[in-house]
Structure formats: structure tokens, C-alpha cells
Nucleic acid binder design. Structure first.
Lengths: 243, 243
DNA sequence: CGATCAGTTGAGAATGGTCAAATTCGGTGG
DNA sequence: CCACCGAATTTGACCATTCTCAACTGATCG
């Protein structure tokens, strides 16, 4: 093993057994460590020839702005996730990415990625495979927006976020630390911030969930799961499929 | 060139310059041609060890059912698209796929795909790259659901579908043939079928768009673009990025 | 100690849903 | 060719969820 098990390496190894060449290439992606303040926009929608980042510490979010000033958050990223990979794969980017908290990330130039993919095709497969799993989360999010009430949306979102963070080792069944504001929730869930506030109050009064002082408490996990029709075992993974 | 330019081959070549081995492997995916009636469910949510399909003729849609009986259509597939690729990549599938019209498709066994990917890693990269572009469409769809009014949603959806079909050579600026029912639209757009009908009537009365007898007419293309804030050049592609 | 930002609450308005019933359309069998 | 059937579309009346606007509180930070 050439490099220590970074979150990204661990994630990729779930899909493809990586060779030494793959791991060396991956290690080369991790020069150029940067840090950014909360709210810094790392990737800007519409720009060409962007660089990408690998998130090492903190939270980020990807979103699209609308012409009326509203925004829709597509997904949140946690350590081990790529930021702006698609902006490299498609020369131009269709969304923006900004830091939610102060973050640490490795900057990866477009040429690093394209050259790396050409020389280490199995690494390319692994990275894209992982990107494809991220799509499953976007799909779940889409279903949430399309067919659930505000209350179900909030409950489902929190459960899903909790499940995701548990995989990375942050948080457990009782709750997790959550640096998001109610505005983040509103922009992610397609609701107004005012209504998010009301829904949170109601969930708290019903004894289901509390979100206060940067932490989410699952006061009644089973009740939330029932309310949101949450599929408990949903991000499972067994072992590499490609050897 | 070993096989004729199938829709899929053309699509993949946009991302990665394919070798003869890649093309042979791809050709091997196209034995086992099948045909299915409209409404046939090809992939069922939750099943394990599914096979995948490559759509050759007709339309399909991928969707998730909710426990209350509602469903959310995630995306529509047209010739050249994979059906159920993720059910192979992740051993189990998180959504269902059904035929919208009568369809023709090549059945591809999980083992075909995994063996093929192991032997032709650049093909793997190309297929996953294309899957990643499909995600961009899912993202656009998500934004549509989260932050637009019913009228904007319908307009945007139709424009996007039109743009996509124009790329495949079906339809033009004046409109396209569309086998969807208003129920399909409702399930895709997170609206009730009744409301979809009302919105369509309104768009027709405003002289913007007509959807009747299986065809969509863009009566006022510029007006629609303005209403939906549609990004006209959005699925562009230049040439293979990976040589 | 202002200033700013996140959270909270109320009142009224709007968008879109539900239920129920009619109408049209595309086949299909006699 | 016509009568009929089921599916898709259309319309109305009423209702619910969620939004908008506006004001107020509380915390944090130079």
C-alpha cells in the first residue's frame, strides 16, 4: 500500500481493486493542499476549464442559481468526496460549489485528471464508479423533492444525511453534528426558510427530531423512519466488484 | 471501424477514443436482442443481480415507487441509453425501469459488463463517463422540481426533452413526437395529472406550446425559453476528451 | 454597543391537490 | 361499418399546503 488509507482511497477500493499505478496516480492528485473559508465559492457555474478538488476536511455544497435569485442545492459533500469533477469531465460546469464550513481540499488540475485517467484506466473506472454512486443520492433527493410533503422531506433528508455520515464515522443513531443553517435546508429541500423553521418546530414538538446549536438529535428514530418511509439499509456496499 | 455507428457507440466516442478491443467488447453487448410491450417492467427496484439493457428502439422511463402508491419518474431513456446499468454496478437496484412504448433492447448480463470492463478499461471509462453526463440531466430535473412553478416546470421539461431528442436526430425546433401521457408528465414533474392538464391548457391558450395527439409543438419557442429560463446550449459536446 | 446574521412567529394570499364527473380517443369485435 | 370498451383527457368546486411579507428576538463579532 503506497499511501495511507485516505477517505477517497477507501471509497474507491469499494468498487475496483486498485493497482500500484492507480494508487501512485491517486497520490499525485493530493499535492496542492488548500484551505478555504466558509462561503467561499470554489467552482462557478458556467466557467470553462475548471480545476477540481478532493475534499479532506469540512462540508461543501453544490448548487445551481436561478435567474430569479433563488438557488437549489443539489448535494452536500463531506470528506472523501470530489468537488467539481464534472466541470473537468465536460470542460464546462453546470453547477457551482461553495464551502459550507471552513474546508481543507486538494486542488486537482484538469490535466492531472485527464492524464491520470489515460495512464491509469482502472483508477478512472473507480472514480467514475464512485461518481455514479453519488448519483443514487441525487436520485433519492429528487424523489424527495418531487413526491413528499415538507415534513416528510425534512425527516427524510436528516435521516439520509445521518446514514451517510455514519458511514464516514461521524455521528450515530442518536444524531450528528450538522453545520448547516435553516437556509441551507430550505435551498436543498425546495422550501422557504420560514417553512423549514415551522416544520422543525413541529418535529420537535412531536418528539421526533431536534436540530439546535449545530447538532441534529434523532429523538425518535423509529418514528422518523416511519414518517419519512426511509429505507434503512440503502447505502450498503460489499466488496470490490471489479478485481 | 468494427461495428456500424450505433447510437451508443456515437455517444461513447464523444468522451473517449475507443480502441478495436473496446469496440469488439461493445459489439458483444449487443447479442440477445429482445423486444417488450409498453408498460413492461424491465428492472424492478430492490432486486439483486439484475441484468441491464441497451435501448435500441422506443422510450423507457426509470422511476421509484413510494409507499403511498405515488411514483416519481427520475428520467426518460431514448435509443442509445443504458437501462439499469446501476443495478449491475451496485449489485442491487434502487429504482425500476419500464417501457413507455413498445421497445427493442439488447439484454446485457451482469457478467458481460463486469468482464468487459475488466478487459476493456477504456470502454468502462467511456460508459461511466456517459452515465455521468446523464447525471447532469438528473440534476437539471432536480432543480426543476425544487425551485420552479408548475408552468415553468412543464415548459422547461418540454424544452429539455426537445433539445435531447434533437441531438439524437428526432424532432427539431418546431416540436417532436412524444409518446408520453399526462400521467407520465405528472409523475416526472411532481404534479397531479389534473394540474398538468390545466397547465397544458394555459400554455396552449397563451400560444406557447401545444401537446396533442402524441406530438409536442413549440408554438413560440423564444417565449417558452424566456418563461422557463432555459439554457439553450446546454448539452453541447466538442470531441473526445480522452485520446 | 451597534451591526449583522440566524432563527422565530403571525396573518393573509397563492399555488397546486383532491374528488367527482363528463368527454374524447383509439382500438376491437361483431 | 358500427357499437362498445377502457384509457386518456378535460373541467369544475372546494380544500390544504406552502409562500410571502413583515416584524421581532437572540446570538455573535468586531
Amino acid at each position: 500500500m503506497l499511501i495511507l488509507q485516505s477517505p477517497l482511497t477507501r471509497k474507491l477500493s469499494a468498487f475496483v481493486a486498485l493497482s500500484d499505478v492507480d494508487l501512485e496516480t491517486l497520490a499525485r492528485f493530493h499535492r496542492r493542499r488548500r484551505s478555504f473559508l466558509a462561503k467561499h465559492e470554489l467552482i462557478h457555474e458556467g466557467q470553462k476549464n475548471q480545476t477540481a478538488f478532493i475534499l479532506a476536511e469540512g462540508w461543501a455544497c453544490s448548487y445551481k442559481m436561478l435567474s430569479d435569485g433563488g438557488r437549489q442545492i443539489v448535494d452536500f459533500q463531506v470528506p472523501g468526496d470530489f468537488l467539481g469533477l464534472r466541470s473537468v469531465l465536460f470542460r464546462t460546469t453546470d453547477h457551482s460549489v461553495e464551502a459550507v464550513t471552513r474546508i481543507e481540499a486538494s486542488e486537482v488540475l484538469a490535466s492531472d485528471i485527464l492524464d491520470g485517467f489515460a495512464n491509469a484506466p482502472r483508477l478512472a473506472t473507480a472514480v467514475l464508479w464512485a461518481a455514479s454512486r453519488d448519483e443514487a443520492m441525487v436520485v433519492a433527493h429528487l424523489v424527495n423533492l418531487g413526491r413528499r410533503s415538507a415534513e416528510e422531506r425534512v425527516a427524510h433528508f436528516m435521516l439520509e444525511l445521518g446514514a451517510r455520515l455514519k458511514l464516514v464515522g461521524i455521528g450515530d443513531k442518536t444524531g450528528f453534528d450538522c453545520p448547516l443553517t435553516q437556509y441551507h435546508l430550505a435551498d436543498a429541500l425546495g422550501l422557504s426558510a420560514v417553512h423549514v423553521n415551522r416544520v422543525l418546530r413541529h418535529l420537535r414538538e412531536e418528539g421526533l427530531l431536534t436540530f439546535q446549536q449545530g447538532r441534529v438529535y434523532f429523538d425518535d428514530f423509529a418514528g422518523l423512519v416511519a414518517l419519512a418511509c426511509f429505507d434503512t439499509d440503502y447505502l450498503d456496499q460489499d466488496g470490490p466488484l471489479l478485481r
